[in-house]
């Protein structure tokens, strides 16, 4: 039997992490089908069909999918479930919200947030905020799995030509209504896929001081992250939070500024290739994971850092 990937998209394009999920799903089972539930979402189905690893696209276009609500998605997914041995999606807020609803109705014990595929029924997943890795085997006949997208490379997006099959929606769920989405738009790279991330913590003291971070992010074409403490204090919006209950990032370079390095924060960034910590407390736990630690006052260090980057730029020119 095949594997079915529930794609995350915005009715125009696949979200970037859908390509990482494709890689993971096809590792579980090569006969990968992708399900697109959207409204006026022809372009999404087309994009999915061009992914070489995808064998078939099922496209259901209906206004009930405009806002991707789990309740409306679930009834349609269940209509297709019989044909699949595994159903997967990304372990971000989209998949976390959706997949357990599907799994429970299939009477399947879901496996959340896998970081490696060992076989078609056995997976590696972090527990306790990544302080332990568990190898787990599903004994359910059908498996529901969410995938940590940053643990898998993005699949190539072009060159394929899978067939697109149209299908009908399931029942509409009446007891829930979408009101609004406040999406924070930015020209910066997305936190999850950026090559460089610079994050600020409580040490930033206020939202205005985040300008020091923004200036460096501009120079390095970096995404901006934050600790939960910085978000809670209102220095920056929640979509920037990195950690156990925020986003997981795996950039080539992660710069933590005024962040102590609580385990819940480390859970979201300690797989980064190179970690830099700037903190005035030499004993801060963040230094234990940093490749390069700078014990300094951030209000002196960040302007200097910007200067040095500017110097580098002018040298290169």
């Amino acid at each position: 039997m095949s594997v079915l990937l529930i794609a995350e998209h915005n009715n125009k394009e696949l979200r970037p992490f859908s390509y990482n999920a494709v890689t993971a799903a096809s590792k579980i089972n090569e006969d990968l089908h992708i399900l697109i539930l959207g409204n006026n979402s022809e372009s999404v189905a087309k994009a999915a069909s061009e992914i070489p690893l995808v064998k078939k696209v099922i496209h259901v276009d209906n206004e009930i999918f405009e806002n991707f609500t789990a309740e409306n998605y679930t009834s349609t997914i269940l209509k297709h479930a019989d044909n699949y041995s595994q159903i997967v999606s990304s372990a971000n807020t989209f998949g976390k919200n959706l997949m357990p609803r599907v799994a429970a109705l299939m009477d399947t014990s879901q496996i959340s947030d896998i970081i490696d595929v060992i076989s078609e029924d056995t997976f590696l997943r972090p527990i306790y905020a990544g302080n332990a890795f568990a190898t787990v085997k599903s004994t359910d006949k059908k498996k529901c799995i969410t995938i940590r997208p940053t643990s898998f490379d993005a699949a190539p997006s072009t060159g394929g030509s899978a067939e697109i099959v149209k299908s009908e929606p399931g029942e509409k769920f009446e007891s829930s209504k979408f009101v609004k989405r406040e999406e924070i738009k930015s020209d910066r790279p997305e936190l999850g896929t950026a090559r460089v991330v610079i994050s600020g913590g409580r040490g930033m003291q206020n939202s205005d001081n985040f300008k020091l971070i923004t200036a460096i992010a501009d120079k390095l074409n970096a995404a901006i992250g934050a600790s939960r403490a910085a978000v809670d204090a209102g220095y920056i919006t929640n979509d920037h939070q990195v950690g156990q209950t925020g986003k997981v990032v795996v950039p080539d370079l992660y710069i933590a500024v005024g962040i102590s390095g609580a385990i819940q924060h480390l859970a979201g960034m300690k797989e980064s290739k190179i970690i830099v910590a700037i903190n005035k407390d030499g004993e801060a736990p963040i230094f234990s994971v940093a490749d390069y630690g700078l014990e300094a006052d951030l209000f002196e260090a960040l302007p200097q850092f910007l200067d040095e980057l500017n110097k580098l730029n002018s040298l290169q020119k």
């Binding site: 014990s109 496996i111 056995t122 972090p126 527990i127 990544g130 302080n131 332990a132 890795f133 568990a134 190898t135 787990v136 085997k137 599903s138 004994t139 300690k270 970690i275 030499g282 230094f287 234990s288 994971v289 940093a290 490749d291 390069y292 630690g293 700078l294 014990e295 300094a296 260090a301 200097q304 850092f305 040095e308």
Partner: peptide, 21 residues
């Protein structure tokens, strides 16, 4: 779900402290 094994995550190599920006 059978828990086959639980292990420590791979440790990061110890880094260094730098003296200046």
């Amino acid at each position: 779900i059978e828990q086959i094994k639980v292990e420590e995550p791979p440790k990061r190599k110890a880094g260094i402290k730098v003296a200046s920006v």
